[in-house]
Amino acid sequence: MAQRIYRSAIVGTGGIAGAHARAVRESGRGRLVAAVDVDAERARAFAGEWDVPLVFTSLDEVLLAEELDLVHICTPPGPHAHLASRCLAAGVTALVEKPPVVSLAELDRLAEAERGSAAFVATIFQQRFGPGAARLRRMAAAGELGRPLVATCLTQWYRDGDYFAVPWRGSWDSEGGGPTMGHGIHQFDLLLSVLGPWREVTAVAARQARQVDTEDVSMALVTFDSGAVATVVNSVLSPRQVTALRFDYEHATVELEHLYSYTDADWRVTPAPGHDAVAARWAADPAPGGSGHSGQLASVYEALDAGLPPPVTLADARPTVEFIAAVYASAFTGERVQSGAVPAAFVERMDGTGAPWR
């Protein structure tokens, strides 16, 4: 039986939109019928590059004009929640780039709107779907690695002053935060998806070098319900760029080092003495491809085929967004912050009562 082809539009035709368009094209399951951007010239250029037949300058226009199954929201973060809510009102599923919202309160309001709609909202956290990630979660759940003990999660990237010259970057209102919100989010989302519910966060954040309103570096110590402890670093000040995750279990260390996307070759397993079978088990289950958008989009289509909420659901994304709020709350108040107890000011805005350098 022929598979359904999903009619899609992309809203926001900046840099990340190309990754979405490529994933749609490679999937064979989607057809891009419209490109939407407030800058009509940019939308037309994007449409020409990706063979998209229609161009609009507002989401409401395309929702009225076309029967869509899926809208890819690729704008700057500020309007994500509003645009996703417009999709829900029209009964169209929204696939939202990270971060899905700029505050925890926005996420909760969006989840409430979703409950009143036949459509869904999913967040792009494609690192969860790359090769190795599913294998790690599967082996951990089966107890093959033993108890999780220690983890590190490093997003040490470099973004210069020109990068932040774009008006919406480095602003609490338009981005919701700095590298904690916009850069490290993919990596610590993967960390959380592996280690499960987090319990408590102690953090620092600073504005060291960039002329922005937000932080340009943050560090957090995290405890998990499992008893594991982790360190999370998010930086845009690091000339030697690296993305690295390390999980120390009783029976093995599992490491991933890359930059913006990974393949199976970027993982390394070091067994503890007497547990060589762990490395053999890992090597026996190779996976093709990389951690780009295609893997998650394939899972989105499969879920829609079955009439199910596509991954990553708002409920799945909430612990990650709450973690970000907890990092800022701890950094700005000097207090430890527990899961489920983020201070109200930091639920409403990631900068809460205000960054100390304000």
Rank of each mutant, 00 (worst) to 15 (best):
G161C: 01
A209T: 09
R31F: 08
Y301H: 09
S299Y: 11
G177D: 06
S226K: 03
D108R: 13
S299F: 07
E302T: 11
L297G: 00
D189C: 10
D248C: 09
G178C: 04
V96T: 02
I324C: 14
A331M: 06
L95V: 07
P148Y: 10
M350L: 14
A265R: 13
T253S: 15
A277K: 10
V55H: 01
A9D: 05
A287S: 13
A133D: 01
S8R: 01
P239V: 14
Q211Y: 02
L64N: 11
L95G: 08
Y158E: 00
A19M: 11
A230V: 02
G146Q: 07
S261F: 05
F120P: 00
I5H: 07
P288Y: 12
L190P: 02
R44D: 04
L32S: 06
R135W: 02
G18K: 10
G15Q: 14
D266Q: 12
V121C: 05
F46A: 03
P148T: 04
L83S: 05
T263Y: 04
E49Q: 14
D60C: 09
I16Y: 15
S294C: 10
V92Q: 03
M181L: 13
P148F: 05
G196I: 00
R7G: 09
H72N: 13
H82F: 15
A45M: 01
W357I: 03
L190E: 04
T57P: 01
A119D: 05
H183N: 11
R199Y: 03
T152C: 10
D108F: 05
G227F: 07
G289A: 11
R44W: 03
S291Q: 06
A105W: 10
G91K: 11
H293T: 07
V229E: 06
V96Y: 05
L195R: 00
T57V: 14
F346T: 05
T123W: 10
G12D: 13
V327S: 04
V36T: 03
P76K: 01
L149E: 01
D108T: 12
A298T: 05
P167M: 02
D60N: 06
Q208V: 13
A65E: 15
A252G: 08
M139D: 04
G182Q: 12
W157M: 15
H72S: 11
A118C: 07
P239N: 04
E322V: 07
R240T: 14
H293C: 11
V33W: 01
Y260Q: 12
L68P: 02
P76L: 10
W50V: 01
S238R: 05
Y163S: 02
L68C: 05
G307T: 02
R336V: 12
W282V: 07
T223C: 05
V242P: 00
A134M: 01
Q156P: 08
T57I: 10
Q187V: 00
A119G: 05
T57S: 12
Q338F: 05
W168I: 11
V337Q: 00
S294H: 12
E322Q: 09
A329P: 02
A277R: 14
R109W: 13
A306G: 10
V254L: 06
V232T: 03
A272G: 03
T57L: 08
W157L: 15
V217Q: 12
L54D: 11
G132H: 04
H251I: 02
V121T: 12
A355L: 10
P319D: 12
R207Y: 00
S218V: 03
E215Q: 09
H186E: 14
M1I: 01
D162S: 12
D160S: 08
A119T: 09
